[in-house]
């Protein structure tokens, strides 16, 4: 099936979509957005520095019709979410968002009810638009580069005024091998620094539950869960996180969850591999120290 990937130039994100594209075709085409070379091999590659979906849309629709793409792959991001609905309407294509598994025969899976249930659907016609939930597919290692054809953008309906990246220092949350995450049990914004110190020792990143973000203790970019970032670290430390299903949805692919919570009946222990029932303030500094010494 003729497949088109639309993604910002980002090794991991494109790598994941490339993996997904294998379910549908040998070699996909790509519309790569942003500056720089396009990593990996593709049938055809278009490129644009424009990254705002409403501005990209007419050109993409035109291209998709012209090339008769059967599968359009996006990831769950402001780009993918911004494009998926409008593309589906413009192409009269079915759209499935937040895909977490793909089976043969065009059967796909996605979570519903905040991850409390999984729905399996069969795609019965093409073209189809899919947004892929991040961290559910191993990213393909992209080798080489593909030269690109510029994608023409006709008009800018939406102007970008400013862009501010809040997570400038440290490892990006989604790619961190270790995530130390704090919830409402942390108690205040200052204590998040304890988590940061621990994360720093392990080349990890600090995350937060929705509760902690709602309290204003952590920036919304740190939010992990159904509605925040989806992470898949080797070790996920859940500190003072109660473990609402929405949060668990965001850590579903973490390999090992270590829960530190003073409430022994907290739901997080149902997901954890290791559990420590105590006040985190007793454990975290000790843990930081021990890791420091081990190095």
């Amino acid at each position: 099936m003729k497949t088109l990937i639309i993604e910002n130039i980002d090794l991991k994100k494109i790598g994941e979509l490339k993996t997904v594209s294998r379910y549908f075709c040998e070699l996909p085409d790509i519309i790569a957005l942003g500056e720089g070379d396009i990593p990996g091999n593709y049938g055809k590659a278009w490129q644009s520095s424009q990254t705002l979906p409403p501005n990209l849309l007419p050109s993409i629709v035109q291209l998709a019709k012209l090339e008769n793409y059967e599968v359009i792959l996006l990831s769950v991001s402001t780009l993918g979410t911004g494009l998926a609905g409008p593309l589906s309407a413009a192409l009269s294509a079915p759209v499935v968002t937040e895909v977490t598994a793909i089976h043969s025969d065009m059967v796909i899976e996605r979570p519903i009810y905040g991850g409390k249930a999984i729905i399996k659907q069969k795609i019965e016609s093409t073209p189809v638009v899919l947004t892929i939930r991040r961290k559910y597919f191993e990213p393909e290692v992209l080798e080489g580069h593909t030269s690109s054809i510029p994608l023409n953008i006709e008009s800018e309906k939406v102007q970008l005024i400013s862009e501010k990246n809040e997570q400038t220092d440290g490892v990006p949350l989604e790619d961190a091998p270790v995530v130390v995450s704090g919830g409402r049990g942390i108690g205040n914004a200052d204590n998040f620094s304890l988590l940061q110190t621990l994360a720093d020792q392990m080349n990890g990143a600090v995350g937060a539950s929705r509760g902690a973000v709602d309290e204003g203790w952590a920036s919304p970019t740190r939010q992990i869960g159904q509605t925040g970032k989806i992470v898949a670290p080797s070790v996920y430390f859940a500190v003072g996180v109660s473990g609402a299903s929405q949060h668990l949805a965001g850590i579903a692919n973490s390999k090992c969850v270590v829960a530190i919570n003073k409430d022994e009946e907290a739901n997080i222990f149902n997901r954890a591999r290791f559990g420590l029932v105590c006040d985190y303030q007793k454990i975290i500094p000790q843990l930081t120290q021990a890791i420091k010494e081990n190095r």
Partner: peptide, 27 residues
């Protein structure tokens, strides 16, 4: 053109190994 095949509740495994925290250093 989507055909709903199945809705299921995922099983959550519970294999949590609790570590004794009497002595935080040891834990």
């Amino acid at each position: 053109a989507l055909n709903e095949l199945e809705v299921a509740i995922p099983k959550i495994e519970c294999v949590c190994e609790f570590i004794d925290v009497e002595d935080p250093g040891q834990a």
